[in-house]
Amino acid sequence: MNMHIQRGVFQRFDPTVPSVPLVVDVSRSGREYPEAFRSMIPFTTLHDNVSMYVDQIWSATPDVGGTMLYASFPNFWIDVNRHELDMDADLIEGQWPKTLQPTRSRTGLGLLKSKSRHGEPVHERKLTIDEVMERLDGYYHPYHAELKALLARHHTQFGKVYHLSGHCMSETGAATHADAGKPRADFCLGNRNGETCSAELMEFVGKIITDDGYSCTFNEPYQGGEIVRRYGAPTRGIESLQIEINKRQFMDVTTFKKTSGFLAIQATATRILRALAERGAGSS
Score class of each variant (00 low, 15 high):
residue 24 V to D: 06
residue 24 V to E: 13
residue 25 D to L: 09
residue 25 D to W: 11
residue 27 S to R: 01
residue 27 S to I: 08
residue 30 G to A: 10
residue 30 G to S: 06
residue 30 G to I: 03
residue 34 P to T: 05
residue 35 E to H: 10
residue 37 F to D: 10
residue 37 F to V: 09
residue 39 S to V: 05
residue 39 S to F: 09
residue 40 M to F: 08
residue 41 I to L: 12
residue 41 I to F: 02
residue 43 F to Q: 13
residue 43 F to V: 08
residue 44 T to N: 14
residue 44 T to W: 06
residue 45 T to C: 08
residue 46 L to V: 13
residue 47 H to R: 15
residue 48 D to G: 07
residue 49 N to Q: 05
residue 49 N to D: 08
residue 50 V to K: 00
residue 51 S to R: 00
residue 51 S to C: 13
residue 57 I to M: 14
residue 58 W to Y: 11
residue 60 A to I: 00
residue 60 A to E: 09
residue 61 T to V: 12
residue 61 T to E: 12
residue 63 D to L: 14
residue 64 V to A: 03
residue 67 T to I: 15
residue 67 T to M: 09
residue 69 L to C: 01
residue 70 Y to I: 11
residue 70 Y to H: 15
residue 73 F to M: 07
residue 73 F to K: 03
residue 76 F to E: 07
residue 76 F to N: 11
residue 78 I to C: 05
residue 79 D to H: 02
residue 79 D to V: 00
residue 82 R to P: 00
residue 83 H to V: 02
residue 83 H to F: 14
residue 86 D to E: 06
residue 86 D to Y: 03
residue 91 L to I: 13
residue 91 L to W: 04
residue 93 E to F: 08
residue 94 G to N: 06
residue 95 Q to M: 11
residue 95 Q to I: 14
residue 96 W to L: 05
residue 101 Q to D: 13
residue 102 P to V: 09
residue 103 T to Y: 13
residue 103 T to Q: 12
residue 105 S to A: 15
residue 106 R to K: 15
residue 109 L to E: 09
residue 109 L to F: 09
residue 109 L to D: 09
residue 109 L to Q: 15
residue 110 G to D: 12
residue 110 G to M: 12
residue 112 L to C: 07
residue 112 L to N: 01
residue 112 L to P: 03
residue 117 R to C: 05
residue 118 H to N: 10
residue 118 H to M: 14
residue 120 E to S: 07
residue 120 E to G: 00
residue 120 E to N: 03
residue 121 P to A: 04
residue 122 V to E: 08
residue 124 E to V: 13
residue 125 R to Y: 06
residue 125 R to H: 14
residue 125 R to A: 09
residue 125 R to T: 10
residue 127 L to R: 07
residue 127 L to V: 10
residue 127 L to M: 13
residue 128 T to F: 07
residue 129 I to W: 06
residue 134 E to A: 14
residue 135 R to Y: 03
residue 135 R to S: 01
residue 136 L to W: 02
residue 137 D to R: 12
residue 138 G to T: 02
residue 140 Y to C: 00
residue 141 H to A: 06
residue 141 H to S: 11
residue 141 H to R: 14
residue 142 P to R: 13
residue 144 H to K: 01
residue 148 K to S: 15
residue 150 L to H: 03
residue 151 L to N: 01
residue 151 L to M: 08
